[in-house]
Design a protein around this nucleic acid. Structure first.
Lengths: 186, 186
DNA sequence: TCACCCATGTAAAGTGTTACATGATTAG
DNA sequence: CTAATCATGTAACACTTTACATGGGTGA
């Protein structure tokens, strides 16, 4: 088994299919019509990605031939697929992802609740908050070291990043509150 | 001339070289040690990208052989390179970029001041602010339409996006203030 | 019948990732 | 002299992008 690697696009597709079975066309529409568009909306990426998932037996396809309907290949998640999705969702958060792959973390979070449950979601949020608190001082250090050498727009761009992470921190605190109260009321 | 396309990584390199001539190694260090890491820190991306820029005559390389120094290929921006950089920096901002490529916009902004001047930077900021104001209602619409169908974590992820754009808006207003006052004092 | 949307897919081309290769120079 | 760092690069591989291809169904 050489490459059992799943791309971010692959995980995004798994997550959407977990929420409800869907065709390639459905999935593509979600990408074009929602803020998930960052994860490729081109058929040349989606259809091959779906066939890879099928080859790995993470999804199965059933052709829906309802009368008066065009042929649709509807994809369903397999138990193995759900396992792979959960593994990704619950993977520990590293600082590198905080620094360079925030959107992917948010994508993971958006699927966590329905695929892995409240407890896993809370754990993610606490870990997310903790890593943000680790990373912010690092960023601020870089700022104080580099600000002098940079033009105003460069400094402002760095400040933009810092403000963004501070906003994440506030968001996380609020999200934790909501999930903590959800956990008590099953 | 078939493909005169420059990748984001290519523009990032042009922007850095514009600030000061640098070797591939220098540039790579900047990517690994600063929040610019999103734009690839691997030699297998950077060195080929630099050779492409050289082939397009956007940069020239001079081998620095100072005594006691390892051989360094230092890259300098050409006038054509500066033109290409400016074209990218001053390109009109589209909603698609606001929605899916914010980090690239911030990268552009960070170079604007030193490569295109105060006036161009102000213009960018005003356009950025305007497009944010256009996009936020779109996002909020999506939210009200989709929130009901989504689990809590999905809703929170969407809210995260909205809060992020609102933070951008505030940042932009502040940045405009700073540049507006800079414009008056030449 | 003609145009348009639904729905799935392929082909070529280029780029990035990962891992490896190479050699010079400085520090201990 | 050995290890670590500086510095540049290449090779294999898989992926995404862009553009095109195909065909069934629907509305005017």
């Amino acid at each position: 088994m050489s490459h059992a690697e799943i791309t971010v696009l692959g995980y995004a597709l798994l997550g959407l299919i977990q929420q409800r079975p869907a065709s390639g066309y459905d999935l593509r529409k979600i990408f074009t019509e929602t803020p998930m568009g960052g994860y490729s909306d081109s058929p040349g990426a989606i259809y091959p990605a779906l066939r890879r998932l099928e080859a790995m037996q993470l999804v199965t396809s059933r052709i829906e031939a309802g009368t008066g309907m065009r042929r649709r290949k509807v994809l369903h998640l397999t138990p193995t697929g759900l396992d792979a999705l959960k593994e990704w969702l619950t993977r520990p958060i590293r600082q590198h992802e905080i620094a360079n792959h925030l959107p992917e973390l948010m994508l993971r979070f958006s699927f966590l609740d329905s695929a892995a449950g409240t407890a896993a979601t809370l754990q993610f949020l606490r870990s997310y908050e903790a890593e943000l608190k680790n990373y912010l001082p690092v960023l601020k250090n870089i700022y104080t070291e580099m600000a002098a050498k940079m033009p105003l727009s460069g400094r402002l761009a760095l400040e933009n990043g810092i403000l963004g992470y501070e906003a994440q921190l506030q968001w996380a605190a609020n999200a934790i509150k909501q999930y903590a109260s959800k956990e008590k009321l099953p």
